[in-house]
C-alpha cells in the first residue's frame, strides 16, 4: 500500500501551491492516472480524506482522470488500446511498441477557493 505515501507527496505539492497563491483552502485536485503507474485509483481516493485532514486540502475533492493503456506500433503506424499486460501490437504481434499513454501519475491542476 504505497498510495498513502504518494497521496502525502501529492498533498505537499498541492498545499505548497495553495500557500503560494494565499488561498484559504483547496476546492479540488485533478490528477491523471494510468493503470501502468502502479497506483490504484480507488485506494488513492480512500486515503485522500485521511491524508488531507487538517491541511489546506481538507475537504477537497479528488478528481481522477483514468488514462487508457495505448501503444504505438511502428510497423502498423497505428495506435491501439491494449490490456495492461499485453503491450504488443494486437494486429501484427510486434512487441517493440511504444507506450503513448497508460503510465501517467500526473498532478494536473488544483482549484483554489477564495483566491484574490
Amino acid at each position: 500500500m504505497h498510495e498513502l505515501s504518494i497521496c502525502q507527496s501529492m498533498l505537499k505539492q498541492v498545499c505548497d501551491v495553495a500557500r503560494q497563491y494565499h488561498a484559504p483552502h483547496v476546492h479540488s485536485v485533478r490528477i491523471q492516472l494510468g493503470p501502468l503507474s502502479g497506483i490504484e485509483a480507488d485506494l488513492l481516493k480512500q486515503v485522500f480524506p485521511i491524508a488531507s485532514s487538517g491541511t489546506l486540502a481538507d475537504g477537497a475533492e479528488l478528481l481522477i482522470q483514468t488514462m487508457p493503456v495505448r501503444v504505438l506500433c511502428k510497423h502498423c503506424n497505428a495506435a491501439f488500446d491494449v490490456q495492461i499486460n499485453q503491450l504488443g501490437c494486437p494486429v501484427c504481434g510486434d512487441t517493440h511498441t511504444q507506450l503513448v499513454s497508460g503510465d501517467e501519475m500526473i498532478l494536473d491542476s488544483v482549484q483554489l477557493a477564495g483566491h484574490h
Partner: peptide, 10 residues
C-alpha cells in the same frame, strides 16, 4: 475558483 495548472509527477 481559480484553477492552477501544475502538470508535475505526483
Amino acid at each position: 475558483f481559480s484553477a492552477v495548472k501544475i502538470l508535475k509527477s505526483l
